[in-house]
Nucleic acid binder design. Structure first.
Lengths: 263, 263
DNA sequence: CGAGATGTTGAGACATGTCAAAGCCAGTGG
DNA sequence: CCACTGGCTTTGACATGTCTCAACATCTCG
């Protein structure tokens, strides 16, 4: 359902901008173009970089620093260890970031939903810390970190918002409680997704997971089999309904209790 | 050893500032005073807020935004849920931050060493997300977030450094690999502490843990007993030597292999 | 010296990981 | 249109790392 919506929204963007498909799939030469709708047309403008800025400021933000890049399912946005050149804001779709370790093991460190920044973690070291790949068709806004810093000297709202967004991400990392049983982590995860869905104006109780069980498991520090079993057990307990990747939260209250409580 | 050093340093600060002990223990009326040594005398000036600023800028940072607050062992710096009024930089000593959950359970989310900021995570929501408590005698520099933002509009270096420090913290959160066996987490933790020690000019291979086993366990998502056993087992394997809270890393290389590798 | 916190050690229980097999769906090519 | 392939998901049986509980040791501080 949501997937379809996303596709439709995507197509609309395509048409508006006259962006051709083959151009979109050009991996190493990201299509450089101005904003199509602009921040003012973006659903997430109040939580993303332009938050708190007036129209002139927003226009300036777009003009000086930003353009849009579309991604197809599975396409990589940035690669771990490569020098950081851009900071991205998710505009539509969903991406995952993951670290590769020397022994080949991979760790999913996060899923990025519209209104979130990608690449803040790379600012300090100067190289990207994760691979970031699109989980479905997605669009991101591309910003030059230098231009952002320059602009935020003149636009206090932008400076403020940059820090706020970093802060939000920090807080969400902190909130992840280790040593909690699988059921609780799963509940917390579902609610997290649910929240993002409703923030985007979609149903908070019926949605489609864009990420595979394997990704979810890896993200939560569990085995895929455990995720599967946990979901089934929640379904048996009438907490949720699951069909493939479609999920319905039947009892959000109970889920929240699970997510908050520690046993 | 380190503990004693810290105490000595502390006493020196005391004398310099003429700060009395009873004033120090006044919890709700934090001692407000100017910097004693100033950023230029601070060991961490190159990794902390003043990084990249010239003398004039540093002086300005201190004058407009900062003063020092000493803490005794166990003293609380900030409380979860209370409105955010300040951002702190650790100058000496070590603090832990922890979240309390509705059911009474506590989660240690981090240890703060000199040169790190405290309170960035609170910027977004506006209330502190954690209790922060000193683990030994410590001093922190107190900054007003508004003053910081104002000043960083005129001092690009400060603006840059604020973001860099947030970025560093983000990256370190991301680096924490869930679902790794206890031995590996423990190795990673010891190396993390070791690194902080050497950054402060102390030995990277012999140090005293300021935090209790319980705190370590909680931080790593393990039971205290598991931490105890893991340390003993590492000692048996000639990787480290442990006596109470004194730790010696006998084979840092092998520890790093443990921390990096996934099995 | 005694009391309370902190750390250690052992035995048993349990949740989760591992391994293996089978089901299901989507895309491909005949 | 159908069989085939390959990835993802589910399910079961079993192994095991970690937790829990309880007892004891040790240190700290009054």
């Amino acid at each position: 359902m949501n997937r379809q919506d996303a596709n439709i929204a995507m197509m609309a963007t395509e048409v508006q901008s006259g962006q051709s498909f083959q151009q979109r799939s050009t991996q190493q030469d990201p299509s450089r173009r101005r904003f199509t709708g602009g921040c003012q047309q973006c659903r997430r403008r109040n939580d993303c970089l332009p938050a708190g800025m007036d129209d002139a400021g927003m226009a300036r933000l777009q003009r000086t620093a930003g353009h849009v890049r579309p991604l197809v399912d599975g396409e990589a946005l940035v690669h771990q260890f490569e020098p950081m050149t851009s900071i991205y804001a998710v505009r539509s779709g969903c991406l995952k970031s993951m670290r590769r370790f020397p022994d080949g093991h991979e760790q999913v460190c996060g899923f990025h939903m519209p209104g979130q920044l990608i690449g803040l973690d790379a600012l300090y070291v100067g190289t990207y810390q994760c691979d970031v790949v699109a989980l479905d068709t997605a669009t991101v806004c591309v910003f030059s970190p230098q231009a952002l810093e320059r602009l935020s000297r003149e636009e206090p709202a932008l400076q403020h918002q940059l820090l706020r967004m970093a802060s939000r991400e920090l807080a969400s990392f902190q909130g992840r409680d280790l040593h909690r049983p699988a059921r609780n982590r799963m509940a917390a995860f579902l609610l997290q997704v649910s929240e993002h869905m409703s923030e985007q104006g979609w149903s908070a109780c019926r949605f489609r997971l864009v990420m595979s069980r394997r990704d979810i498991a890896n993200y939560l520090g569990l085995a895929p089999e455990t995720v599967s079993r946990t979901l089934r057990s929640m379904e048996a307990g009438r907490l949720i309904r699951v069909d493939r990747r479609e999920v319905a939260l039947l009892h959000p209250g109970k889920l929240e209790a699970l997510a908050a409580r520690h046993a």
